[in-house]
Amino acid sequence: MLFDFISAALVTLLVTLDPVALAPIFVSLTRGMNAAERRRVSMRACLIAFGILAFFGLGGEVLLRLLGVGLPAFRISGGMLLFWIAFEMVFERRNERKQHTADIAITEDHIRNVAAFPLAIPLMAGPGAITAVILLAGRAYGNIVHLTSLLILIALGIVSCFVVFSAAERVSRWLGVTGNVVLTRLLGVILAGLAVQFIIDGVLALLRAPAA
């Protein structure tokens, strides 16, 4: 029973977190940062994502129900915010105020902001991962061993993201300035598609929900 729960949870978390797919997005979001700054972003994002997923695993469904907020609404709002980030990536709006070398310095606030949004949420701890964690916690039926196993598996999934982000630094150096610019534009388009899919999923979930 425990083995079945662990195996199902591990596969589900790895699929929803999808660390490999996050690597090129991480490179684009941290363009212009040095290795130490990228490491700080990845560590902060992973800690935030773990905290969010652990929270929702232990009591997120209850909180959302008390607040009257449904996961479909979370999908729609997250998708809209993600689409704005994609728009900025495609049209280079993120660097409009950084045309000269002296203006490209990475500030502490920028590092914190990128780590929290959009990296930690909604890219890592997004609607899919949160939904998966809530459903897996429901399958634990309050069993402390199962819930502890779930928290450990969430931590392992986040660690896998950190490992992939660390390797992404070498990819960034290999691409160079031109390669990073091209990759940013391309991934902006892909990110826009992902954002629209979040919105569509949220709308469809609302349409399928029974009338109150």
Results as ranks from 00 to 15, higher is better:
Arg44Phe: 10
Val41Pro: 06
Arg40Cys: 01
Val41His: 07
Arg40Thr: 06
Arg31Leu: 14
Arg38Leu: 09
Cys46His: 11
Arg44Met: 13
Ala23Gly: 10
Pro24Asp: 10
Val41Glu: 01
Arg38Met: 15
Ala35Leu: 09
Arg39Asp: 11
Phe26Leu: 07
Phe26Met: 04
Arg39Glu: 13
Val27Phe: 09
Ala49Asn: 03
Ala45Glu: 02
Val20Met: 11
Arg31Ala: 15
Arg44Ala: 13
Arg39Lys: 14
Phe26Tyr: 10
Leu29Lys: 00
Gly51His: 08
Gly32Lys: 02
Leu53Ser: 01
Ser28Arg: 05
Gly51Val: 14
Arg44Gln: 10
Glu37Gln: 15
Arg39Thr: 13
Ser42Asn: 06
Gly51Glu: 06
Ile52Tyr: 00
Met43Tyr: 04
Met33Lys: 04
Val41Leu: 11
Ile25Arg: 11
Asn34Tyr: 05
Val20Ser: 11
Asn34Trp: 04
Phe26Trp: 03
Ala23Pro: 04
Ile25Pro: 00
Ala36Val: 13
Met33Leu: 12
Phe26Pro: 03
Ser42Pro: 00
Gly32Asn: 02
Arg38His: 04
Val41Gln: 03
Val27Cys: 10
Thr30Met: 08
Gly32Ala: 07
Val27His: 02
Val20Glu: 11
Leu47Asp: 03
Glu37Met: 12
Val20Asp: 08
Phe50Leu: 14
Leu22Met: 15
Arg39Ala: 14
Thr30Asn: 08
Gly51Trp: 03
Val20Pro: 00
Ser42Cys: 04
Ala36Trp: 10
Leu22Ala: 12
Ser28Val: 15
Cys46Leu: 09
Arg31Glu: 13
Leu53Thr: 01
Phe50Ala: 15
Ile52Pro: 00
Thr30Glu: 06
Ala23Val: 10
Ala45Ser: 13
Arg31Met: 13
Arg39Met: 08
Ala21Asn: 11
Leu29Cys: 07
Ile48Met: 02
Glu37Phe: 11
Leu47Tyr: 07
Ala35His: 07
Gly32Thr: 05
Ile52Ser: 00
Gly32Trp: 06
Arg44Pro: 00
